[in-house]
Write a protein that binds this DNA or RNA. Structure first.
Lengths: 350, 350
DNA sequence: GTGAAAGCGCTAACAG
DNA sequence: CTGTTAGCGCTTTCAC
């Protein structure tokens, strides 16, 4: 077969099949798309001809004509983060199950880059987009509104969202975590890494804060907003935990925060849960590999993905969404890093 | 704007631009593709018209006509595994830097699923494919050969490969790790998880084995081939390590193996490096979060990705590859899980 | 039920 | 340097 610039030239087309099978173009198309109303014999002739020629469908041409690609795009900040890679993997599985294609891209939390990337896929006429935005993605979202493309926002929702959205209920997640810590008997708890530019992190803090109030311990609890960079969080943690009066427990606002806090804990020689309790929002693998395992407030990532998928498919089908903004419940997974404090309060049952 | 089945109808086309800007189709195309030979004034008229209409290019149509998509596909087993997610991320960055699109898919180590997925992308006429195969992907690879699509194999290479390939030098990686362990003074070392269906894991073992021989300790070293499932590896580790004569050190053949070994170590109460040394092939984040950090033989994932990318671009350009099979060197990262043994051999300097 | 013809949106070739 | 024309591979009317 001849090649030119890396592309295969003179590939067999429906035309060639029609000729070989001695049927017309329309029939070939009908057979290839599994339409029922074709005589058995012709089906056979066509499929055999196709196989014989080594025919492979040109989906781009089909999309051009039929004006639908059966592809959706998924944009997440990165896939290093377990939560996002689970979302991506779940959606890919859904796509396979329903025979639809899925294209991924990562935004690196960068508006310009994301906009270019998304633009690229949109220009390939994906049927819709599932997007995990960053806090400054307004320009891109505005553009998507203008293009009138079906979009579902996932995870990083804002107070108000133009597009439909699905995420964990962050307020209740924060509340759940806070309640667990106070139920354990921890009085002084630090909520670490609740970067307020991300509305969802603020929500987590607000939930935590409500739990502290209800437990009558709001005076003893502090919050530290920090960047999302584990290194910065690590340095800050070192200061907070290395002071003369370190808190009794830490609630990490995100898995990124945890990645800064854990090394800090270790380098200070603070044992968990002996010296300090640790609870993390958003599970990831290392948390189970640590000894003892770290307790978490886990997000239902598969359910979030499935809900986002379903919403997008409805949008694509032109249906109305019964609920435009869905919030799913988080769950508490208690491992060894948070323990009920005994009567003497800093003594640990081990 | 009207919508039908989720698609936007009546979108502006080059035609509309030509009409509004009062130029011809060819000129519009020239402007839109940044060809230099257009009068400044017309460029302006065209770009303004495009903006005014909210024009967005239909890349599929362009690809159909120009017979090149400027897109490549990348297929990895999964993105939960840090090595693969790094490969994917690196390639995406390269794509952005060079203005080419990248599409990902995961194979789940499943030949049938992979074949369907790859077929799907191939039918969209990607310019080439970067593939991390599984040991039983021969049918798919055969199909790709028939289609004459540019392909580069990454990581999971076999003894003989039809397509060009790039991977870490697994034999030398195994040797490097083994040598480090024997230099530390460990006599009895178990190489765990070297699933021989994966030729690269066997290579790692062979390298390790050679180091054992050179150190005169081959009699004391054992190897266990196991599945890639962390759970199975965990159970096997429990047996091996729980016996009356556990080895002095473990060399985990892969990060998957490590994910089974580490929980086993913990549930047996074996301390690292106090009771036993641990070295892992293939780095991942949890290894740095553990205390002490786990020593690894690290793969140059970014370099592997970059090399694969470069090779594929050459192939697509129709150039010949100077080297069809590239093997990159691994590097040893010593953290706290492997320590030089003192004279009394099981005593640890801490 | 099958065949012929038109055209999706774009680019490439060539004429002016 | 600009305009016209043809056609990429497929699907989709609409006759038959």
């Amino acid at each position: 077969m001849k090649r030119f610039m890396g592309r295969t030239l003179g590939e067999p087309t429906v035309h060639d099949i029609a000729q070989l099978a001695r049927v017309s173009l329309g029939t070939v198309s009908n057979v290839l798309n599994g339409r029922p109303s074709v005589k058995q014999e012709l089906v056979l002739r066509v499929t055999q001809a196709a196989a014989q020629l080594g025919y492979r469908r040109n989906t781009n041409a089909a999309s051009l004509r039929s004006n639908q690609t059966d592809m959706i795009a998924v944009a997440v900040p990165n896939i290093e983060n377990a939560f996002f890679s689970e979302i991506v993997t779940s959606i890919e599985h859904l796509g396979i199950a329903e025979g639809k294609g899925v294209m991924f891209l990562t935004t690196s939390e960068n508006q310009d880059r994301a906009q270019r990337q998304v633009h690229n896929l949109i220009s390939r006429r994906v049927d819709g987009l599932i997007l995990v935005p960053s806090f400054d993605f307004q320009p891109m979202i505005r553009e998507l509104e203008a293009y009138n493309v079906p979009v579902v926002l996932v995870d990083r929702v804002e107070r108000e969202n133009h597009f439909p959205s699905v995420a964990v209920d962050n307020f209740r997640a924060g509340y759940l975590g806070g309640k667990h810590l106070f139920d354990c008997g921890y009085d002084e708890v630090v909520f670490l890494g609740g970067e307020h530019r991300f509305w969802i992190l603020k929500q987590r803090y607000d939930g935590f804060s409500k739990a502290a109030e209800e437990a009558g311990r709001s005076r003893l609890c502090r919050a530290y907003e920090l960047s999302l960079e584990p290194d910065e969080i690590r340095n800050a943690s070192l200061k907070i935990l290395g002071g003369k009066k370190p808190p009794q427990a830490i609630f990490a606002a995100s898995n990124l925060a945890a990645k800064g806090i854990i090394p800090a804990l270790q380098s200070l020689g603070l044992r968990v849960p002996g010296d300090i309790g640790l609870l993390v929002m958003d599970d990831f693998e290392a948390l189970t590999l640590l000894n003892p395992g770290v307790s978490v407030v886990a997000q239902p990532s598969a359910a979030i993905a499935a809900t986002g998928w379903r919403m997008l498919q409805s949008l694509i089908a032109g249906a109305d969404l019964p609920e435009r903004h869905i919030r799913l419940p988080a769950s508490l997974v208690v491992r060894g890093s948070t323990l009920p404090l005994g009567p003497s309060h800093l003594k640990v049952q081990q």
